[in-house]
């Protein structure tokens, strides 16, 4: 410290109450008040507890937009328990997440399951936690082939596939492209962390959390609070708050829509209600007693 910067010995003797208030307390109070403009950093939580389809994807995208537009949200924790969903909706969320990740870290916590499309999203985040027995994997595509095209008496269309979407062969090849895209997403997302071959990845198998850790599909076995800590560390923040982005974004309470097929007996099946191409894990359902 140079001599000029050291106040003279009688410097503070010349301060009276008025001076203290004017030159000390007032700026300090003003500074304190102004400092409140520096918002406490937030870790935003996005929960995916349903299949990925238009409704759930739209909600997720709204929350992602909210996070990207609010600078106090410094990191996002994606909490997952989902079997995946439609290809298009999964990709829509994936691309929004990719944009968000340019500015904020995104951490995934796999609670019950991150299968198929849900894992597609998880692979596109910066760090993945799983429980020892979370269900992870089912990397691949699922689809029913369209019916053989035909013409019917009183229905007219303007092209051979107008009624059927595409040929069976074209659909088969489309799902192969989707599969390759999925593989790329996993390899890009997991990069050097991945410790297994393409064949194993594409086998469509599901693994538990511990096994998927060995394969490099997740980074760590850990809890939600560990995920917050990791997110804070990656975002270089401390003394943060954790907020549910759904609440912050003003979304109503989530009510699942009719994504899965309900059988004629009124039982919810693990199959999607509509034909299409899915990143979806269809678990072996339990029999009723």
């Amino acid at each position: 410290m140079t001599k000029s910067m050291i106040p003279p010995k009688n410097f503070f003797k010349s301060w009276d109450i008025k001076s203290i208030l004017l030159w000390g307390a007032l700026p300090l109070i003003t500074g304190i008040l102004l400092s409140f403009f520096i918002k406490q950093p937030l870790i935003g939580v996005i929960r995916l507890t349903d299949a990925i389809y238009n409704l759930s994807a739209r909600d997720m995208i709204t929350q992602i937009h909210y996070a990207s537009q609010h600078p106090e949200i410094k990191a996002i924790v994606l909490v997952m328990d989902s079997p995946g969903g439609t290809v298009a909706d999964t990709e829509a969320v994936y691309m929004e997440l990719a944009r968000l990740r340019q500015s904020k870290p995104v951490i995934t916590v796999i609670e019950g399951m991150a299968a198929s499309g849900a894992y597609y999203l998880a692979a596109g985040t910066d760090y993945i936690f799983a429980k020892p027995n979370s269900t992870v994997g089912s990397i691949g595509v699922y689809s029913s082939l369209p019916k053989y095209p035909l013409v019917v008496d009183d229905v007219y269309s303007t092209g051979p596939y107008k009624l059927w979407g595409s040929s069976r062969d074209a659909t088969m090849r489309e799902i192969e492209i989707a599969k390759q895209g999925f593989l790329q997403a996993v390899k890009l997302g997991r990069a050097k962390a991945l410790k297994t071959s393409d064949e194993i990845i594409l086998s469509g198998q599901v693994w538990n959390g511990s096994e998927s850790l060995k394969l490099g599909l997740v980074d760590e076995i850990g809890s939600l609070s560990q995920a917050y800590e990791k997110a804070a560390k990656m975002a270089h923040i401390a003394h943060y708050r954790v907020e549910d982005l759904r609440v912050l974004a003003g979304l109503p309470e989530y009510t699942p829509d009719q994504f899965f097929l309900t059988s004629s007996e009124g039982i919810l099946t693990p199959y999607p209600a509509k034909a299409g191409i899915y990143y979806l894990y269809v678990p072996p359902a339990e029999r009723l007693p």
Partner: peptide, 12 residues
Amino acid sequence: MIIALICLVLPA
């Protein structure tokens, strides 16, 4: 003035 400025900035 320097002190005032410090008091102003310090909380932030």
